[in-house]
């Protein structure tokens, strides 16, 4: 039991993700979380005039159920399967974060400075970050699950290009833009 309560090692976690992909394939579906955001748009009726959102969202209900399950999974993971909430990132990372005023990694799963203490800055960060993820995922036709896991597993060159893009964007944000933001 204590093994479950500890953070899971990368080789176990990576394997379990591929199992998720496999079971969804066996269900006759494709693993990809971000298409749910498009389905949400259609469900809310905000895209009535746009062809991109004209489809029967009920056909995508299965994927919404997966997303709902992920919410429940997060609840179970955080409340019943964890003994310590801190994240043991490398000491170099901890030091580097301290320099930009983020000191909560040993006691919290997410930086409280961004996700719990609301300032104008932290709210703008959440809104802009979310917007870019939603916009970019649909522009690229998939996110980490659809491209990095499903697409690369099927040796798709477009997915490799998308994943390279993910990393260019991520590196630009952390190394060039973070010094301006924090």
């Amino acid at each position: 039991m204590s093994l479950i309560l500890e953070p899971w090692p990368w080789y176990v976690s990576g394997f379990l993700i591929s199992v998720v992909m496999f079971v969804l394939l066996m269900m006759g579906d494709q693993f990809g979380v971000s298409s749910n955001l498009r389905t949400l748009c259609t469900m809310c009726g905000i895209g009535k005039k746009t062809t991109f959102f004209q489809f029967d969202w009920r056909a995508e209900k299965w994927n919404l159920l997966v997303a709902l399950g992920m919410v429940i999974g997060g609840f179970i993971g955080a409340n019943f399967l964890s003994s310590n909430v801190g994240v043991s990132i490398s000491p170099t990372t901890v030091e580097q974060l301290q320099e930009i005023g983020i000191t909560s990694s040993d006691s919290h799963f997410l930086p409280t400075e961004l996700f719990e203490t609301f300032t104008l800055k932290s709210i703008v960060i959440l809104i802009v970050g979310g917007f870019l993820v939603g916009f970019g995922a649909r522009y690229a036709g998939g996110c980490t699950s659809g491209h990095a896991i499903s697409g690369l597993s099927n040796l798709q060159l477009p997915s490799l290009i998308a994943v390279i893009g993910f990393f260019i964007g991520g590196l630009v944000m952390i190394h060039l833009l973070f010094p301006l933001i924090f």
Partner: peptide, 22 residues
């Protein structure tokens, strides 16, 4: 184009919010 540009925009958001859709 779509994969590279879309991917870069996604990556900027992924690093900023620290979370992808899942």
């Amino acid at each position: 184009k779509r994969y590279l540009f879309g991917g870069i925009i996604f990556g900027l958001g992924w690093a900023l919010a620290g979370a992808c859709p899942g």
